[in-house]
């Protein structure tokens, strides 16, 4: 992975992380965490850890879906 490519994928990750802090709605926050995860995966793959990339790609969406349970609960209450 050469320098312009590192800058592009790092831009994806940093825009996602800053956007997760600035958003107010909780669905927008979850979307921004997903964008940050998408920016990080190419670095893991470029390092050669494909099995780690497979495991992380299957664990992080499960974490998001667990968090969505409590989002739905709060939306019903209000």
């Amino acid at each position: 992975m050469d320098d312009p490519l590192v800058v592009l994928f790092a831009a994806v990750a940093i825009i996602g992380a800053v956007s997760a802090h600035l958003q107010h709605d909780r669905f927008n926050k979850l979307i921004a965490v997903g964008i940050t995860f998408g920016g990080i995966v190419p670095f893991i793959v470029d390092r050669g850890y494909l099995d780690v990339a497979i495991a992380i790609s299957l664990i992080i969406p499960i974490t998001t879906i667990i968090m969505l349970l409590i989002c739905r609960r709060e939306t019903c209450d209000t």
Partner: peptide
């Protein structure tokens, strides 16, 4: 496209399935 390895296809498929599931759940 990053790595020429047979397992990279499986990694891309796992990422695709996971992220699509996440976006559809949201």
């Amino acid at each position: 496209l990053l790595l020429d390895h047979p397992l990279s296809l499986v990694a891309a498929a796992a990422y695709f399935v996971g992220s699509t599931l996440e976006a559809n759940a949201i």
